[in-house]
């Protein structure tokens, strides 16, 4: 069952960092998935350091520049309901409200959501897969209807489970990290690790490093944000196909576009092809059609997930039409 572990809950950040650094500790924040990971031997730690007592890492604050600084321990519900988040980046609030179920949103944290372990049923099940140190990705030849169509390089075909990361990535947000070597910034877009770089790691964080805050730059004029998530059931599920949009509009013209997919790849998947097809254009039917085709042009679907190609296209088409309606309104 559960391995034996010690548990410590410091109330100061430096103590937490020291505790995490000393030994192979696992971090407890919201704790929605930690016990499951320990039970399924996904995390093998004999020490749990809970950072849930670090009150300073909780809450949303406006920065002097007009952006937001969100503490890593802010709950997903806290983000979904925060008036500043809703006003400045509605897409982020939408993403937060689409996470899991109400109970999990009340408990889960932003930091935890960004650092989630994958949900692949082979990885979570009793299969000694590549990501767990084995020598094979079972999903490539196996039951892969929920798996990646981009960025897997036929190495490991998980999809990244986060709903908040795609929006934060599209907004150009950065995570503030503290660790044994001091602090550093990492763009959310660079936080996650594709399998070709390291199939055993989900984030670039070093052992002992924790995310303390997420900084989101001030919203530029004409910013339109949204998040859409298609899933097999309407609550408590991960994305089959999801998209975060951050469009900077000038009238009905898209000046700059960030489009990041969830449910698509082992990392939040930025579709540069879609962005390029959109940037500089108005949201005409013709443009939307081109963007949707460009978005899936490079897809490498697997045996059971070919449906994702039309699903991503269809979902993106709907989202871009919504953006057009919004701009007209």
């Amino acid at each position: 069952m559960l391995p034996k572990f010690s548990y410590i809950r410091p109330d100061k950040l430096d103590q937490a960092v020291a505790q995490i650094q000393a030994g192979n500790a696992a971090i407890h924040a919201g704790g929605t998935d930690l016990l499951g990971c320990l039970r399924e031997r996904i995390i093998k730690s004999e020490k749990i350091v809970s950072i849930s007592g670090l009150e300073k890492l909780r809450g949303v604050r406006e920065t002097v520049e007009g952006g937001l600084r969100i503490g890593a321990l802010t709950t997903i519900t806290g983000m979904a309901e925060d008036p500043l988040v809703r006003k400045k980046y509605p897409g982020l609030a939408m993403a937060a409200s689409e996470v899991a179920s109400p109970q999990l949103r009340n408990q889960g944290t932003l930091g935890g959501n960004l650092c989630q372990k994958p949900r692949c049923w082979y990885y979570r099940g009793e299969f000694h897969c590549l990501r767990k140190g084995g020598n094979q990705c079972y999903a490539i030849e196996g039951e892969n209807q929920f798996h990646a169509i981009f960025g897997h390089d036929n190495i490991c075909v998980i999809t990244h489970p986060s709903d908040t990361a795609p929006v934060l990535s599209a907004l150009g947000a950065k995570v503030q990290v503290i660790g044994p070597g001091g602090g550093r910034n990492i763009a959310v877009a660079d936080l996650h690790v594709p399998p070709r770089d390291d199939v055993r790691a989900e984030t670039v964080l070093d052992q002992g490093e924790i995310i303390t805050h997420v900084d989101i730059p001030p919203p530029p004029a004409g910013l339109y944000t949204s998040y859409r998530k298609v899933r097999a059931r309407r609550s408590w599920d991960f994305a089959l196909a999801g998209a975060a949009l951050a469009l900077v509009m000038d009238g009905d013209r898209v000046v700059r576009a960030s489009i990041v997919f969830s449910g698509a790849a082992p990392v939040p998947w930025r579709s540069r092809e879609a962005e390029q097809a959109l940037a500089g254009n108005t949201l005409s039917d013709d443009t939307i059609d081109k963007v949707c085709r460009a978005a899936t042009a490079g897809a490498k679907p697997l045996r059971e997930n070919r449906y994702k190609v039309p699903m991503f296209r269809g979902m993106l088409e709907e989202e871009l039409r919504k953006a057009r309606l919004q701009e007209k309104a």
């Binding site: 899933r231 089959l240 070919r306 449906y307 190609v309 039309p310 699903m311 269809g314």
Partner: peptide
């Protein structure tokens, strides 16, 4: 939704 999209496409 997977089956719907599959059949419609």
């Amino acid at each position: 939704p997977m089956e719907v999209v599959r059949k419609l496409s």
